[in-house]
Write a protein that binds this DNA or RNA. Structure first.
Lengths: 220, 220
DNA sequence: ACCTGAACACCGTTCAAGT
DNA sequence: ACCTGAACACCGTTCAAGT
């Protein structure tokens, strides 16, 4: 009879750490960051974890659930708890968008994963509620508050997606823009000294400036 | 009535229409519209065209090139030639964004295809140049014009992507939001009477309002 | 010239079997 | 309880062969 280690400490050489859901999600995101979403597969994930490809199904329902978990992990990276909740709605939302942008651009290969599923985690719902509450205090009715949050989120997502596409495309694409094309040069001139990312603050400021509390114009 | 059918109608029983690049791209987009991007495959495309799965490779390099072509087809659907080019920059860009939104939401399953590749077609470049020219006439330097166009495009893309996700998710998702969750009800209340699409014009107007010509504050 | 279909190197996921 | 690996029903793409 051998005495088994009940703590599950099996990290001796030649022995793997036990599979956990979090470790699987982290490994999957790392794999996507490193090699791109196209190259990702459940089988490669198993290989990266040095485990049978099917072992992860013990912890995660399927690839769809894994991607949901990755999206939530990315959202957690925002650390919304530390947003300037004591400040104005504008400060909160501005900082939220900046962090969302920064986080997404740290995972350019995973932006699509994040953008293609609605996040319904506890933290995500709480954050939405807190934002709408803050906007209500400043005179925006709840419905309008939700609209504002959605507008800003969508702009930031679209921006991050576009920048990710351009960055990854610039790195991997072989067909380069045709420099002999006169119209291309007009665009190139327009883009001169303008990184395809510098405009984020411009759009963010413009949109924030554009939102004004609703006047009461009748019942409701 | 014309002598020759310009649609290339050779649908007599037992005889296929000859494969053309355009027919392939149209069939692929129709398939994605109908069944979703996940279910799309080159093999299914061949089946839909009643052709050996490999026959399309005679006309299109690979799946990536096919998706590029689909993105360009969607862009053509905007019919940018009929934008109000005689009007103000604001009218042009507003209408452009509305059309882009409408077109993308007519192809919710293909929004990602469109959003994940830069379009470099003749029409697309021309449109960008014309927009920047128009903005310059109103006092926006070319670099700023390009930034404005990008901001609006990114907002519209992010919006369409989000709405597509919500619509398709609502149709297909089995795990429904937890109505017992008190926070969910705050959000539900905020969303009451607000379709998750109504806010597009709000954000568009806010952003357009926020863009003002740059004052000359020095050389250049 | 254009289409075919076998073949190759992959996928996600199920499930019976192992430890 | 957890991991394995054969098996199933798929993929995209290449290429020699057909018409």
């Amino acid at each position: 009879m051998t005495r088994e280690d009940p703590t599950g400490d099996t990290t001796r050489p030649g022995r793997r750490a036990p599979l956990t859901r979090d470790a699987i999600v982290a490994a999957a995101l790392a794999l996507i960051d490193a090699d791109g979403l196209e190259k990702f597969s459940m089988r490669r994930l198993g290989a990266a974890l040095r485990v049978d490809p099917m072992a992860v199904y013990r912890h995660i329902e399927d690839q769809e659930a894994l991607f949901d978990a990755i999206a939530e992990t990315i959202f957690e990276e925002l650390d919304v708890a530390s947003l300037p909740w004591e400040g104005t709605w504008r400060e909160v939302l501005q900082e939220y968008c900046r962090r969302l942008r920064g986080t997404l651009l740290r995972h350019p290969n995973a932006v699509i994963v994040f953008a293609t599923r609605p996040i319904r985690s506890r933290t995500s719902i709480d954050t939405g509620v807190k934002m709408i509450t803050k906007l209500r205090e400043t005179g925006f009715p709840p419905g309008r508050g939700l609209q504002i949050v959605r507008c800003l989120r969508e702009y930031t997502l679209g921006h991050a997606q576009s920048v990710a596409v351009l960055r990854l495309g610039a790195a991997a694409r072989s067909r380069k823009p045709d420099r002999g094309d006169p119209d291309y040069n007009v665009l190139a001139e327009a883009a001169d000294g303008t990184e395809p990312e510098d405009h984020f603050e411009l759009g963010l400021t413009a949109m924030l400036d554009g939102f004004r509390p609703v006047r009461a114009t009748g019942p409701g």
